[in-house]
């Protein structure tokens, strides 16, 4: 603990080109990205305690752009796999490992992409033990 206090507070670095969007306008934004021929790179989910933060990463000519939505726990997120089919794998992953309900995924593995039946669901959530 002492060691942490000696260190000077640093400037907090955040990723550039990030845009916060609301869940309701997400699909329109993603469609716009698809119309502008952005390549879907991946999605990242973060468990922030009372809500999930989901980032959508797009690439155009080696420049990354990101969309960020915040989903309160217990609410659902629409799938973008109708626009970018490539998202189906990562959406299944987030649904299974974080327990965030994503609706209408093109190929839905019903929470069995990685884990088999009978194991503890949503192991990546912060309230699950680290081991």
């Amino acid at each position: 603990m002492m060691e942490t206090m000696e260190i000077k507070p640093q400037e907090i670095i955040d990723i550039p080109n990030i845009r916060d969007v609301d869940v309701s306008e997400l699909l329109d934004r993603v469609k716009k990205a698809a119309d502008e021929k952005r390549r879907f790179v991946t999605m990242t989910a973060l468990d922030r305690g009372d809500h999930f933060e989901v980032l959508y990463h797009f690439d155009r000519d080696l420049h990354l752009e990101h969309l960020r939505v915040r989903v309160p726990k217990g609410q659902t997120l629409p799938s973008i796999s109708s626009v970018y089919l490539a998202a189906f794998l990562v959406e299944n992953e987030i649904k299974e490992l974080f327990g965030l309900e994503i609706t209408d995924i093109a190929i839905d593995y019903q929470n069995h992409l990685y884990l088999i039946e009978g194991v503890e669901p949503a192991p990546m959530a912060k309230d699950k033990p680290l081991e």
Binding site: T4, I7, Q10, I13, D14, V41, T42, T44, L46, L64
Partner: peptide, 27 residues
């Protein structure tokens, strides 16, 4: 110091683009 903030790092693997997203809170 300790890492604090969020960052994305991309490199080219033999199989293609590799992306790491890191979120650190200074611990």
């Amino acid at each position: 110091g300790r890492p604090k903030g969020q960052v994305i790092s991309r490199v080219e693997q033999p199989r293609g683009e590799l992306l790491y997203f890191l979120s650190a809170d200074g611990t």
